[in-house]
């Protein structure tokens, strides 16, 4: 008894609070379980509608029509037609990402001169979000109306300037026809994602450079350039991923054939009756995911490098 009481005598406060905490702790542990219960709806939902579909999509690539394991679908990925689709997807995504990133960055640069809460900025921001996220089918319509066979620009160029943009055949409904519509959502996406990085350039850096006798050229090449480089490359990758995974515009524009990977997935899904094609969609999905994971991992690595300067 005395030994047990000794610590209490030395610092009684702790002892009493210790004994008082016990019921509280029990309550807390009880609430702890309820606490974890609170996480279950979200966990359950994400499991059912994100994890399961993703695993199913990737898994069916390894199954044949009877449900037994096979690598046939994966080897089907190396079919020249499918390799061609991957190649088309790559160059369309890469080209629109590079052009989109450069033009978008220029717009961001120009926007730096406008008031952050001004009307120009808020209109460009909102219009960019609309085009970047809402585009899809609407963009196909817009470009058919603009550079379709009877499109506004096509007709004006033909009647007023005598140039026929389709002299070598109609390319709008082919892979090259995707370039302009894709740029129409790539540039806005660049504006949304790159603007925060550009705004993170601190005026103090420019002042410090100017105090030390640096010109604007030196400021851009030695300070702003290196600071912005990881962010610019990250945005470039995001744009690539965005174009690579985009489906709606291409689907609405190209109704015949499957020249890019998302359209190959459509073809594989719709032609489920054709023997042996059903699970190719899974293999294609797997191929896409591999590309997306590589690109997005590099993106987040570059983003965290950018974050260093944005504190």
């Amino acid at each position: 008894m005395t030994v047990a009481n000794a610590p209490v005598l030395i610092d009684g406060g702790v002892g009493t609070s210790e004994s008082r905490r016990r019921p509280v702790e029990r309550v807390r542990r009880g609430r702890g379980l309820v606490k974890y219960l609170g996480l279950t709806p979200f966990a359950f939902y994400v499991l059912l509608f994100l994890a399961v579909p993703t695993l199913l999509a990737l898994g069916t690539g390894f199954l044949d029509g009877d449900g037994s394991l096979t690598l046939d679908n994966i080897t089907a990925l190396f079919d020249p037609v499918i390799l061609g689709a991957f190649a088309s997807s790559f160059w369309v995504s890469a080209l629109t990402a590079i052009v989109g990133a450069v033009v978008g960055a220029l717009v961001c640069y120009a926007l730096l001169g406008t008031r952050p809460d001004g009307a120009v900025r808020s209109f460009v921001d909102s219009a960019s979000s609309v085009l970047a996220q809402f585009g899809g089918v609407m963009l196909a319509f817009a470009f058919i109306a603009t550079i379709g066979i009877q499109g506004l620009v096509t007709v004006i160029l033909r009647d007023r300037f005598g140039t026929d943009i389709y002299a070598d055949g109609v390319w709008l409904y082919q892979v090259p026809g995707l370039l302009l519509p894709y740029l129409y959502f790539q540039v806005p996406l660049m504006i949304i994602t790159f603007m925060p990085a550009l705004q993170g350039l601190k005026p103090q850096w420019a002042e410090a450079a100017a105090t030390l006798g640096g010109t604007r050229l030196i400021f851009w090449t030695r300070i702003a350039g290196p600071v912005l480089a990881p962010s610019f490359l990250g945005c470039l990758l995001l744009l690539f991923a965005n174009a690579f995974s985009s489906y709606a515009t291409a689907a609405a524009l190209i109704s015949q054939g499957a020249q890019i990977v998302p359209l190959q997935i459509r073809a594989a899904l719709i032609s489920e009756t054709v023997l042996g094609r059903a699970n190719v969609a899974g293999a294609l999905a797997l191929g896409m995911i591999v590309v997306m994971v590589v690109v997005m991992t590099s993106y987040s690595a570059l983003q965290s490098r950018t974050a260093r300067w944005q504190r």
């Binding site: 994400v46 994100l50 069916t60």
Partner: peptide
Amino acid sequence: FICIVPITVPAIVLVVGLAPV
């Protein structure tokens, strides 16, 4: 991380697995 995953798993991939779900 979970909330950002749908960017990496685009709709066109998700739909392949959503069909059976």
